[in-house]
Amino acid sequence: MKLLLKILKWIGKIIAGFIILLLISGLFFRLFSSKPVPPGKLVDVDGTKLHIRAEGEKNDLPTIILEAGSGNDTDVYHWIAESLKNNMRVVRYDREGKWFSEPTKDSITPEYYARQLHKLLEKNGEKPPYILVGHSMGGPYNRIFRDLYKNEVKGMVFLDSSHPEQWKRLAENGLFDENQVSLLKSLAVLADMGLLGSYNAISNPEYKIDNLPKDCQMRKLKLTSYSGDVYRRYLKANIINNDILLRAGQSSSLDSLPVLVFTAKEQYGDSEKIWFKMQEELKNLSTKGQHFYIDANHGSIITKKENTEIINKEILLMAENIE
């Protein structure tokens, strides 16, 4: 019995020592690691600093506004921006609280983000007309923006975009289920403690996202390791998601606005036909809608260079033909 107690005591000391070592490594990471540097600049909008990247010369063509989905940042649009900026002005940004943008202290309404983006564009010296490009949840955000600023939007592009009725028609509960929410909360704590950062510093993992350049991959890895804010923003997106979809569904018809809809062919499960049907409905929002299918999945439709070459060709053609 005494031997067993001694063994348990030593096991307890080993576990305690291991925990202390982890906490120290996390503390060292928080104290001595440098904060990831944003690739764009921070612009103050009503006391909240938003991250924006504006590239390409301003000319007679409309300015492209790139709106990312709930879980992505400006880097996800790397290949689209790299190509289009040679022909026109291209703007991409992070919504409040996402990635390099500060969280707002304001109360959030479904129209808040559209109004905040409008102010951001004005403060950065951008001028309409605009073509709005949205991937995933970026599509509904863009529909709200266009509803508020009709005269400034001359075209819209939906990239495997979310649909206002998707959760009901796909029989799903939202962006994240209860287990995923718990995981995100845990990851936020681990990141704030520096444990994710110290682990990645030791293990040096490879972070690959469908052929995005290495600097884009590493920037994402560093930011998700440095702070729990990224994960808390996922949780916030989960809370406001239904309100955004509801407001997007209440937006007016797109009439004869030029619209391009790009749909990823590689969908999952029995919901594929339902998703394709909803994508067709997005095209039918306008009498000038066009629908294209891409050999890609929901992510690689914009992160794989070969796919963006198809998309960029059609976007440029749209821009050149807008009166």
Score class of each variant (00 low, 15 high):
Gln166Phe: 13
Lys288Ser: 15
Gly134Gln: 05
Arg30Gly: 06
Ile80Gln: 00
Ala201Thr: 02
Gln166Glu: 15
Phe29Gly: 00
Met318Glu: 03
Thr308Asp: 11
Lys105His: 15
Pro38Tyr: 06
Pro258Glu: 06
Lys305Met: 08
Phe292Thr: 07
Asp177Met: 06
Phe158Gly: 00
Leu282Cys: 02
Glu165Asn: 14
Glu82Ala: 08
Met218Ile: 10
Val90Gly: 01
Gly71Glu: 11
Asn200Pro: 00
Gly97His: 02
Pro258Asn: 05
Ser34Pro: 09
Ile19Gln: 10
Ser227Trp: 14
Leu254Lys: 01
Asp160Asn: 04
Arg169Leu: 13
Ala54Pro: 04
Phe32Gly: 12
Ser251His: 03
Ile80Ala: 02
Ile310Tyr: 05
Val43Glu: 09
Ile240Asp: 04
His163Asp: 14
Leu316Cys: 14
Ser83Trp: 03
Ala237Trp: 03
Pro36Ala: 08
Gly125Asn: 10
His291Tyr: 14
Phe100Ser: 00
Phe276Thr: 05
Glu309Trp: 10
Pro213Tyr: 11
Arg219Phe: 12
Val43Phe: 07
Leu317Asp: 14
Thr224Cys: 08
Val37Leu: 12
Ala319Glu: 02
Ser198Met: 07
Gly194Arg: 00
Pro140Glu: 04
Arg232Phe: 13
Val43Thr: 11
Ser25Ala: 15
Thr308Arg: 00
Met218His: 05
Lys214Tyr: 14
Leu245Arg: 00
Gln250Asp: 13
Lys85Gln: 11
Leu254His: 01
His78Trp: 08
Ala237Lys: 00
His163Gly: 05
Val37Trp: 08
Phe28Asn: 03
Glu122Pro: 04
Asp295Lys: 02
Thr287Glu: 15
Lys154Thr: 10
Leu132Asp: 00
Glu96Cys: 09
Lys58Ser: 15
Val189Gly: 08
Leu195Cys: 03
Asn312Phe: 07
Pro38His: 04
Pro128Phe: 12
Ser186Lys: 10
Met193Pro: 01
Ser161Asn: 06
Asp44Met: 05
Lys313Asp: 15
His118Leu: 04
Arg30Ser: 10
Gly194Met: 05
Asn124Asp: 15
Thr303Leu: 05
Asp243Ala: 11
Glu55Ile: 03
Ile311Met: 04
Gly269Leu: 13
Leu175Ala: 02
Gln217His: 06
Arg247Tyr: 11
Lys85Pro: 01
Pro62Thr: 06
Pro62Asp: 10
Leu195Val: 07
Gly139Leu: 05
Gln250Pro: 05
Asn173Gly: 11
Tyr130Val: 08
Phe158Pro: 01
Asp243Trp: 01
Gln290Leu: 09
Asp44Leu: 08
Ile11Gly: 14
Glu152Tyr: 07
Glu280Ser: 13
Leu50Gln: 02
His78Cys: 02
Phe18Pro: 04
Ile202Ala: 14
Gly197Ala: 10
Leu285Pro: 04
Tyr293Ile: 12
Tyr149Gln: 06
Ser271Trp: 03
Leu42Glu: 10
